[in-house]
Design a protein around this nucleic acid. Structure first.
Length: 150
DNA sequence: GCCAACGTTGGC
DNA sequence: GCCAACGTTGGC
């Protein structure tokens, strides 16, 4: 089983929204590297940190579970959607998503500044400069270390 | 709102 | 295939 981190702006969709909805299609991914990981590597049952980005206190806010195989992101075909892609076709969809299921909120958010300060996380992707990927794998070692911080 | 660090696009 | 221009991400 693999571990992941997935970013979302809490103003758009937060861990509280996922707790309410329980299950949600993680749509809007429009980056090829992220797409390839969703399509080729994510497995049902994998666990993922829910990270709140672009907000007052950027932090890991909760845990969720990958709940479906990858399938075409319907928002790419919707001209009114924010992430509409006019070049994508139903025959050859460019973007995929997975459903995610709520597992739990962190006992308390583990903030970005804490993660940055921890010597054991020097090579954690989130805290490395220039990191912009909205989805990336987390090693088991880092996963457990972060769980120990909450 | 600023800006660094990318990724994408398109002319050549 | 190069690279300048442009768009996006996301912390601060």
């Amino acid at each position: 089983m693999a571990y992941w981190l997935m970013k979302s702006e809490p103003d758009a969709y937060s861990i509280d929204d996922l707790e309410r909805d329980q299950m949600e299609p993680w749509d809007g991914i429009r980056n090829y590297q992220a797409r390839n990981m969703i399509r080729d590597e994510m497995q049902v049952g994998d666990q993922a940190f829910f990270y709140h980005s672009s907000c007052k206190v950027p932090a890991i806010a909760g845990i969720m579970k990958i709940a479906s195989a990858a399938y075409p992101d319907p928002t790419q075909f919707d001209p009114k959607a924010k992430h509409y892609d006019e070049k994508s076709t139903a025959d050859d969809p460019r973007w995929v998503l997975v459903d995610v299921a709520f597992v739990r909120k962190m006992q308390r958010p583990v903030t970005l500044s804490e993660l940055k300060a921890h010597p054991g996380l020097a090579d954690f992707k989130l805290t490395q400069r220039g990191n912009r990927l909205s989805i990336f794998p987390v090693s088991e070692e880092h996963w457990k270390l972060i769980l120990g911080l909450e």
